[in-house]
Design a protein around this nucleic acid. Structure first.
Lengths: 231, 231
DNA sequence: GTCTATAACGAGATAGAC
DNA sequence: GTCTATCTCGTTATAGAC
């Protein structure tokens, strides 16, 4: 009976994966706002009520897709950092940024799901937070390690922002100077500005060699958080 | 008869505006993907086919909303520049950036329409280009004026990007050094990364004092394009 | 000529009875 | 799970009011 249970569990996992795959295909065609459980069921030859065995509501299916997207992006970014030389924080930074860009260009609809316009009527539950935080935490880790080992270049901080920057540093990385914490959050948002503009077509007819442009921009972002090239 | 024509023309303008207003209200509730001509007509007490006298198709209505949004944002940004001191390019830059942020926070759904995820099945026609370019051209103008009068600080440029940067400068502002042109385009995208993260909720539970944070970030963006404070 | 209303099409969603 | 009756949608053809 353990084999029977195992088979059942395996079947459940497979069907769940098939549902998510079909939903992702629908995401590409119709967008998240029009994601329809019925259409997903139709594509799978199932009846819509059967889907509710796997996802209690459309929003739960959306949540699963969002978490998967964040995790897929996060895994790609983490792998890129792991493959970059340990001693060079700028190389690590640019490797992570480039992995984000490559993933986004390969999965534009999932990118739109997590970094595009919010889906009307949908509010992301707290369960998405850990997956959503992965790329940010990775960037923090790079800067923190560089701070510990080779140090950061000095950064400016206006008086107006001091208390917010101190709160930020306390939350994100207590060992980091507040200047670096504030610069890090800004660079994080700016990175996704660059990626979003490319994925959503704002660079059409503006930039030709987008890869070179991006590499240059994220290198400057690395400098803006205080990173300097390793040996 | 000129009065009769004027009355007709005025009525047409008024009805057109009412349709767009209702459509904007629908945009906020349902999102662009679900914008429905019939719902707009219903809200106005019209019949759906009557709308076709004003907009030949749903996509044309969307296009009109997009152009209006770009123009509203562009006008706000241009007014902010005009109100900032002529002699201080950094103040002008931050004034424009802050106007973009304020407009986006006041019109989140229209912001999503123009800088969020693309609407599935909709391709923006070339007629949106002039309106879409207004903010970018404004930022270019600030940097170009600063270059002419007070000069820019020196900027780096990798060999890899040189040809792209030269093409960019030739397209956008032939009098600007290629370094500044490349930095400008990057800062432009990064600005909308900052704004998008705030409007779309990515800063929730991360940044408290978003206004101070934003001001600090765009001041650093101004430096990244070579601007220095005036007298 | 300019506009609105009626009716219809084909496609798809939805709710409920069975 | 299935079937059906009733919604929605974008769009068009047509007829008539101003």
């Amino acid at each position: 009976m353990s084999t029977a249970q195992g088979a059942r569990a395996r079947a459940r996992i497979e069907v769940t994966a098939a549902i998510k795959d079909a939903a992702r295909r629908q995401l590409a065609q119709e967008g998240a706002a029009r994601l329809s459980l019925r259409a997903v069921a139709r594509e799978l030859g199932m009846v819509s009520s059967a889907l509710y065995r796997y996802f209690p509501s459309r929003d739960d299916l959306l949540t699963a897709l969002i978490i998967d997207a964040y995790d897929s992006l996060g895994a790609a970014a983490e792998a890129a950092r792991a493959a970059a030389p340990d001693a060079d924080p700028v190389r690590q930074w640019t490797a992570v940024c480039e992995a984000v860009r490559v993933w986004a260009l390969a999965h534009p609809h999932e990118y739109a799901l997590i970094y595009g316009s919010p889906v009307p009527g949908y509010a992301a539950p707290q369960t998405t937070v850990p997956a959503a935080a992965r790329v940010g935490l990775l960037l923090i880790g790079i800067v923190r390690d560089a701070h510990r080992t080779s140090g950061l270049t000095e950064l400016p901080l206006t008086a107006e922002l001091r208390s917010e920057a101190e709160r930020l540093a306390a939350d994100l990385a207590p060992d980091l100077p507040p200047e670096a914490a504030a610069a890090l959050v800004a660079a994080w948002a700016e990175l996704f500005g660059l990626v979003g503009f490319e994925v959503f077509g704002q660079f059409n007819r503006v930039i030709e060699d987008r890869e070179a442009f991006f590499r240059h921009a994220v290198t400057r972002l690395a400098a803006s958080v205080g990173l300097t090239a390793g040996p």
